[in-house]
Amino acid sequence: MAAMFIRVDIADSVQDDPAVCQQLVEVCPVDIFELDDGGRVRTVEDNLDECTLCDLCIDATQPGQIDVVKLYRE
């Protein structure tokens, strides 16, 4: 089932830094980020609703690069 409650937007600029991409995969406690074959970071649709709103992904990137959107607040 598609994510109902949370959407995570990743700014294109994140892909410029492979270390940050890797860090996103490592910091998220509920595996919302993964790397594709080309080393680009993307979200895992099945896990999005597990987001704990911990902001670790936001802390791991530059301001504005990651946006965690609560769909039920929109």
Binding site: M1, M4, F5, D49, T52, L53
Partner: peptide
């Protein structure tokens, strides 16, 4: 236990 996490779970379960 977090209220919002359980709320998400029960809403999703109902819809599923």
């Amino acid at each position: 236990t977090r209220v919002d996490i359980v709320a998400r779970g029960v809403i999703k379960g109902c819809i599923e």
